[in-house]
């Protein structure tokens, strides 16, 4: 699966869980694993850091 921004290979780990963030190794764009369908993985654009994020 390739990055929508720069088309680099994302190299998603086989054990990536739903909700996990995958970063493009080339441009740094973040994607969230939105679901798994058999061996396929659905990605969506990850949320950007919010003002209320943290501990």
């Amino acid at each position: 699966m390739n990055c929508q921004e720069c088309d680099a290979g994302l190299g998603i780990p086989d054990d990536a869980d739903v909700g996990e963030i995958v970063s493009c190794p080339d441009c740094g764009a973040d994607y969230e694993v939105a679901g798994r369908d058999g061996s396929g993985i659905k990605l969506k654009q990850a949320e950007t850091v919010g003002e209320d994020w943290g501990e």
């Binding site: 869980d17 739903v18 694993v33 949320e47």
Partner: peptide
């Protein structure tokens, strides 16, 4: 309950 699955939530 999570909104971003980090190392902490996986642990």
């Amino acid at each position: 309950a999570f909104d971003r699955l980090r190392a902490e939530e996986k642990m």
